[in-house]
Amino acid sequence: MKRRAWPWALAAGAICALSLAPFAWLVLTSFKSAGQVTAIPPVLWPGGGLELYRSALSRFGLMHFVLNSLLVAGGTTVISLTLGTGAAYALARLDLPGRPWLMGALLLVSMFPQISLAGPIWRMLQSAGLLNTHLGLIIPYVTLTLPLAVWILTSYFSELPRELEEAALLDGCGRLGALVRVVLPLAGPGMFTAAILVFIYAWNEFFFALLIMTRRSVQTLPVGIALFQGQYTMPWGEIAAASTVATVPLVLLVFLFQRRIVSGLSAGAIKG
């Protein structure tokens, strides 16, 4: 087997290159000077330094898109995990009739097309005065990420040894006490995995953000990047810079926690 390893390594190299090259081109572009961005033949060695980043910050107001995204994605993650943890514990450990149905119903929600929810959610938010607010966007995000969080956490909780809780129960803790004192401290890694995936979802979402956030001051990064217009031509350089800023945190997450992400995705998918 060892002898045959190199063609596979070569294939893996090609896969890497194809996966990374287009994005690398965008990152490279973001370090060019304004004149180099659309040059043909393409300029391979960027000579703009941080010029385009400065321009994206000043002309495009990149920072407030980043802040809005952090706020919305952060808020979604906290709320989704809080609600999801309780639900997952109940589903994993407590005696519930119709458990498979509940799990199935949740899975179904994660498959709902956005368009089927958009009109009603938009009308509900409008009548509640929540359009153009961070909370108004967090509500649909929590809804759509809850199934993922619950599935990941349920599979994680089911794998924790029951004996630990039973000991706590014998100590007179009660179920809730056992959850808070014994299970949660152990559930850190599972919750972290769910948090990463929920955060990535909320950071990247575009459809609801486009409908709900029409005010510039509350728009998130994807909306900003999709609608960024120049007065003269397409500002590709600034788009590249903003895109890099939007993506670098995710790339870091992926390289640091790829094992967790993969296991989280499999919990959501394989066991579905």
Binding site: H64, L67, N68, L71, G75, T133, H134, L135, I138, R215, S217, V218
Partner: peptide, 13 residues
């Protein structure tokens, strides 16, 4: 709404 960024609604107001 506590979730509105400080300093961002400024222009509108």
């Amino acid at each position: 709404m506590a979730l509105v960024l400080p300093g961002c609604g400024g222009e509108a107001q």
